[in-house]
């Protein structure tokens, strides 16, 4: 931000430039990118009208809104208060919550999660909300593992969780972690990018 913003500006005219609050929300909330679209496409392909879907780390509300267009009853959850406001403004019912922890057992047919997954040195982590939306800790799995610990609890019988996984975070380690918690994994979508391959992995309880 530079110091030229008051030059010739009518202070009451909010139309010429984005309001500071809006600007701040754009800078503190992860905006939809190729990973969001890959996850949303996979979810939309699966979702049936009337399915109950939880979008974990909903951010701007993009995946939730796409699922709602496909006929799902959606709820978004996010740690970040700016993201909660942005998703709510997009018409997504939203709860400020840590992953799936604030939701009842068996409440959802589908859970979607585009996690923060970039491997990050500890000293660089979580300095602000955007960092929080991107950083997955040293191995990239700091948010993925607690998600896999609790997601089966909130799924109804026959339900499934859709997780965006990058080759940067060792998909095989993710799969092993999930298997140890009784979740079986199926790759349902994939897309290659210059420094990583993005996958959408569908998890179901092994008993289902």
């Amino acid at each position: 931000m530079t110091g030229d913003r008051d030059a010739g500006d009518d202070p009451d005219d909010g139309t010429a430039r984005p309001r500071l609050a809006e600007l701040r929300e754009t800078e503190t909330v992860y905006q939809p990118a190729e990973d969001s679209r890959l996850l949303a496409d996979a979810v939309v392909e699966t979702v049936d009208a009337g399915d109950r879907l939880l979008d974990v780390g909903t951010g701007s509300g993009y995946v939730a809104a796409r699922a709602r267009e496909a006929g799902a009853h959606v709820v978004g959850a996010d740690l970040n208060p700016h993201a909660c406001r942005q998703a709510a403004a997009a018409g997504v019912p939203v709860v400020r919550a840590d992953l799936t922890t604030a939701f009842r057992a068996g409440a959802f047919d589908l859970v979607a999660f585009n996690p923060p997954y970039l491997p990050t040195a500890p000293e660089a982590e979580w300095a602000d909300w955007m960092e929080r939306a991107l950083s997955g800790g040293e191995d990239g799995r700091a948010a993925i593992e607690p998600f896999l610990d609790d997601t089966a609890r909130v799924l109804a019988p026959g339900g499934a969780a859709f997780l965006l996984v990058s080759t940067l975070t060792d998909p095989e380690a993710v799969r092993e972690y999930a298997a140890a918690r009784g979740l079986s994994a199926t790759e349902v979508a994939g897309e290659s990018h210059p420094f990583e391959r993005l996958l959408v992995v569908r998890f179901t309880s092994a008993g289902d």
């Binding site: 604030a102 939701f103 009842r104």
Partner: peptide, 8 residues
């Protein structure tokens, strides 16, 4: 929403 939320 009360039907799906609980104490975390």
């Amino acid at each position: 929403l009360m039907d799906i939320i609980c104490c975390p």
